Simulated scan of single mutants.
Amino acid sequence: MRVYIGCGGYTDEDWTAPGLIYEGVKKDAFLETYAHHFDAVELNSSFYAIPGLKAFEGMVRKSGGWVRFAVKLNKVFTHVRAPTDTDFDRMLQSPEPLREAGMMGPYLAQFPYSFHRTAANRKYLALLTERFAGHELAVELRHASWDKPEVREGMGEFGIIWVSPDYPPVGGMPEPQVHVTGDVGYLRLHGRNRETWWEGQSAGERHDYLYNRAEMDEWAEKIAAVAGDLSELYVFFQNTTGGHALKNIPMLREALNARGVPVQTPEAHDGGRLL
């Protein structure tokens, strides 16, 4: 199993603080710097506006070929849920530079908690699956009504990746477990800040949480248990606030290596790049 580990986004201004990876780095060099530390990233900007071909070409160039990109679907697909044919065309075609460079990871469909398991929503998810056929699609379903073996079985039949989450223990959401629905796994670690999950005014507040070593060991055990069932696993830390993810990723790498799950880092490759 090849493990890719990175963060939800790469433009966090918190990381410019003294001692963190963007200290003294200009914003247009963030991605280049990020690529020296991590081999995967979840692209958040596409949720708000679908980047064009030239923007993706720039990502390929600045990352030097090292980073795998998981591209988040625009909100019109997951929150508005009224995508046009043009939206589908742009979402599918714009990341072509990533595919050509061998840097494309799964698409991520991040549905909100309000997206319950109803007949209408099941029908919509089937439509989305059909339109993204032939592409890896990871789906995060935040309401507990989806957290059932039969749902994951159906996703596996249609080639959809179940996003395994780690949420704060507030109830009503899927349990923190690694589930496998195909050859590729996808894990999102949101932190466990129960005080700000519902009341937080921003994603930064909701994800303001630093995992301790025991919690990283816990996830390493769960990952090791499915290592024989997957060819690839993507792990994305969402707790980028205050640089928490920058501290937790080395912990997880160490814990995985200790359990016989090898984790590659940029330093393991000649020149720190895949290409």
Rank of each mutant, 00 (worst) to 15 (best):
G182R: 00
L275P: 14
G154C: 01
P18F: 01
V76S: 12
V3E: 02
V226Y: 11
E215V: 02
L189C: 00
H179D: 08
E157Y: 07
L256W: 04
S114R: 10
S164D: 05
H244F: 03
A119E: 15
K222V: 03
K148N: 07
T265F: 06
G159N: 00
N193Y: 01
E13H: 14
V41Y: 03
W162A: 02
R61K: 09
I249H: 12
Y209V: 04
L187Q: 03
Y22V: 04
G272M: 04
V184N: 01
T196H: 06
K26T: 15
A29L: 15
G272I: 09
F56N: 05
G102W: 13
L141N: 08
H37N: 08
R131V: 06
P106K: 11
R253S: 08
M216Y: 05
M104C: 13
G105W: 10
R188G: 05
L98E: 02
P250L: 02
F30I: 09
A133R: 05
T33A: 13
F56G: 04
M59V: 11
R206I: 10
R81W: 02
V139G: 14
S202E: 11
V139P: 05
L128S: 06
A268L: 08
T118G: 12
A126K: 05
V67W: 00
E195R: 07
K26G: 15
G159K: 00
V235K: 03
A70D: 07
E42L: 01
N121S: 04
A203S: 15
E130A: 08
